[in-house]
Design a binder for these strands. Sequence first.
DNA 1: TATTTTTATGTTTACGTTAACATAGAGACA
DNA 2: TGTCTCTATGTTAACGTAAACATAAAAATA
Lengths: 338, 338
Amino acid sequence: MTIKKTARPTMIDVAQRAGVSQMTVSRAMSGKGYVSEEVRLKVTAAAKEIGYVQNKLAHGLRSENTQLVAVVLPTLGNSVFTDVLTGITDAVTQHGFRPVFGVTEYSQESEEELVQDLLSWRPLGIVLAGIEHSETTRKAIIASGIRVAEIMDIDNSPISIAFGLSHKAAGKKTAEYMLSKGHRRFVYVGSQGGKDLRALKRFEGFLEAINEEGATLISTEISTLPSSLAGGLRTTEQILSAADKPDAIYYANDDLAAGGLMYCISNGIRTPEDIALAGFNALPFLDAFPIQLTTIRTPRYEMGWQAGKYLVDPNHTHYASEQRCIDVGFELITGDTC
Amino acid sequence: MTIKKTARPTMIDVAQRAGVSQMTVSRAMSGKGYVSEEVRLKVTAAAKEIGYVQNKLAHGLRSENTQLVAVVLPTLGNSVFTDVLTGITDAVTQHGFRPVFGVTEYSQESEEELVQDLLSWRPLGIVLAGIEHSETTRKAIIASGIRVAEIMDIDNSPISIAFGLSHKAAGKKTAEYMLSKGHRRFVYVGSQGGKDLRALKRFEGFLEAINEEGATLISTEISTLPSSLAGGLRTTEQILSAADKPDAIYYANDDLAAGGLMYCISNGIRTPEDIALAGFNALPFLDAFPIQLTTIRTPRYEMGWQAGKYLVDPNHTHYASEQRCIDVGFELITGDTC
DNA sequence: TATTTTTATGTTTACGTTAACATAGAGACA
DNA sequence: TGTCTCTATGTTAACGTAAACATAAAAATA
């Protein structure tokens, strides 16, 4: 006879205590199949007495239903993605699911490994941030046969379904608004060394629009660091100290833009008279600023929520082969800085 | 449309393809036991060809080793906890583990359910934010026999080990500094309807210190909402518009304090001459403010990292019954607002 | 050369659960 | 009254993997 490592109670222990078969315990706990009220009470009492805890590994292995949803995000260091994760978590938790996540740090190689690893948990579905993935990643997910939802971006072909917005259109819209306010000489400020593909798409849309109008992009300042207020502030200081000053700065996101705005506020630089500023995301802390930043509001929580709901809601129709994009839209916040 | 159950390849399929037994595949994939280099290559090639993906449910069930770490947090809506989660994730990922998490929204009842559910995944260990838990929660974890680490707080008896700081001491230290700067009439600003127990402990320490010195607490303003800059701003406006004005405000955290500081900056109110302000956490975005907030720096990422490392590092000694607190400390940032 | 050790592989079984099938009594209906 | 359906329970097998045990050839040692 071998010695068990952990003698955690199983359904067999509960069954013995309740004087029924193990299968009856299973039925009483899961609520599936017929169990008399009397027996059900005996079983739940016995389970509580001996501290029975379900083993989800065994459950998942046998039933092929893990109650797990995999989530792949570039980082948790930006509230944009924690908003999304919160939406996903809320949606799937409602249906008894749990998220298992990993972060890629904006690397497609990391994403490949991560997806492989997450798939080994046999989740019901997977949520991927972004719509650009390596062929290996796409193949692995398709081969697994599980449900997929891509979020944030719709500017490409999704594996199956995408809930997002057109970043190219958002960049374009920002440019059009800035141009309409008479700005003509721009600087673009980015971060992450250009690894943020959605930021690049916004910049692309932005560039197209200003080129169409014959306006000028003086320079681009892309730091390798993650975006931060402090980084945006420093970069803005440099830009405004240079000989060839722009009349407007387009930032990859609100973290950078807020830093720029803070620099202006602190140094008595007027917006938009001395310099116009625009960001992206409409982060909530900007509400507290005395000057409202021109930016674009994105429904981050909602994208996560919709994707999560889509994956776990049994009433949803699922699109295995059909590819479709759900445009959740965005809203230009004109603000005071253009 | 029904979801078809895909016949995903197992080790048996790999074995057939490679012309070996299933057990040899298991050994080749896991690296445990003897496998000749020749066979190992055949197996990995066969696995790749048919798109084999490990089944972690079966692995975990058989080996009693899930490579999972459970994480319980009050919310993801505050960067304090995402910092912690990032630390945990980084530490456990290094050792091939994956976090499974859930949020309690500051409710002990939610925590009970959540812990029960997370335990059913048979994680190697669990990280809990905070040191105050219901007796049911404590019992369930102890009965499960898994490793536990509590983080953030050390002002109580941990289940096993806690990595955190004394919030009471932090509140006291802030009060002492403010008193040393001559402030005597205080208002306290909180949020979450007092459900944030760590904030309450800081307030407790703060109160003790000002009472010892005979200073006055004019009032406490505790909103039921989650903390935000906008909330801090509004509350500060109210406080400074009242007839009985304090000479210092102590905020439950930096989100609220930053809102207050922003109100002062926007309205030409001088700190600390007109009003002194202090917060808690030293959130990074405050670096970009023209006036540095008086606050307390907390090693959030480090707490998460240490807890994660403690749980999954095979070289660590584990303290099953012994209770101990690891004080990670804090640092007073004197700043400009006191 | 004989013996022991190391390496390499296979066979059987068990992890804890649920699906599928089996059985039997209670009540409904002809 | 006999058959049929519904309810309540039990029995057996299977999910995919790794531990335990078994075996045999190759290498090391005596």
